[in-house]
Design a binder for these strands. Structure first.
Lengths: 143, 143
DNA sequence: ATTCTACCAACCTTTTAAGTAGGTAATATA
DNA sequence: TATATTACCTACTTAAAAGGTTGGTAGAAT
């Protein structure tokens, strides 16, 4: 599995905030209810998005979260980068990987590299707005 | 991380067998040494490839493993499918996933589906021969 | 003063990854 | 026939990650 619940849930929360963004600050309690997610778990994840300046959090009554940019100005890649960390498909390519002595002549490394590239490009090309508008619904299921 | 050592090592072993395939049966001891892999660990992984008819194993002195097909007739996808199992990027898409009630209106599912498709196509388009010939070496590293 | 909210630290449980240990069964060679 | 060599099998271990929960504190509105 490549993407854990952390990133997946974060995306769904961001989408929920995007859908309800006219209502000012939206309490996570509501979002969690709508999305059927654990409130407490989301409370653990959201501070990362705040710290990165992706959403604004307001304490107290009438508080909650709200998006800082327009939905079209968030790419899926940056949201996953913050919540999931590195999206490297293999350990050798992770940022914190210890240098591998075989890298110079490894027959498989270039392939992993290309996949890494492909996946990053994929997520780079999708914005919150794309998801909101359902621009991928025409994709067939894989057997 | 998407691909674990199981699949990565299996691929390297298959490549090693491909490179040395004129020498008849090749003992895993040699392969493990060349590839700097744990012999015992590989012994745990290879039976799956034998059972699927990807390699032949011969017991006893002079025994070892050998490829059954030509390198160009193995795709990376089938090797990973056997050693890694499902390549689904998210739990919702895995074969053994319990049906999700939100699937019908989930805004993110089509994206995961498309990624799944993309990754499978990617691995489908690469054969052992491609890797052997270094047909991916021109790929730049990602920052 | 009260209520609602974000935020934070510590803990917990289960699953997966990545092997290791110690064998048995088959095959060639001396 | 004895020995060496090899694949193959079962059980175990250790460490890390996933996926949360518990129990709070601090800030803001009414």
């Amino acid at each position: 599995m490549m993407i854990s619940t952390r990133g997946r849930y974060a995306l769904r929360v961001m989408l929920d905030l995007a859908e309800n963004r006219k209502d000012g600050y939206i309490p996570m309690k509501e979002v969690a209810q709508r999305q059927e997610l654990s409130l407490k778990y989301m409370e653990r994840i959201l501070p990362a998005l705040v710290k990165e300046g992706f959403v604004e959090g307001l304490h107290g009554k009438g508080g909650g979260y709200r998006l800082v940019r327009e939905p079209k100005d968030y790419t899926v890649r940056e949201i996953l980068r913050i919540t999931e960390g590195d999206l490297a498909p293999v350990a050798c390519l992770a940022c914190d990987a210890k240098p591998c002595g075989r890298a110079g002549f490894c027959k498989t490394l270039p392939m992993w590299n290309r996949l890494y590239h492909t996946v990053n490009d994929f997520f780079d090309g999708i914005t919150l707005e794309d998801l909101l508008e359902g621009r991928f619904d025409s994709v067939s299921v894989i057997p």
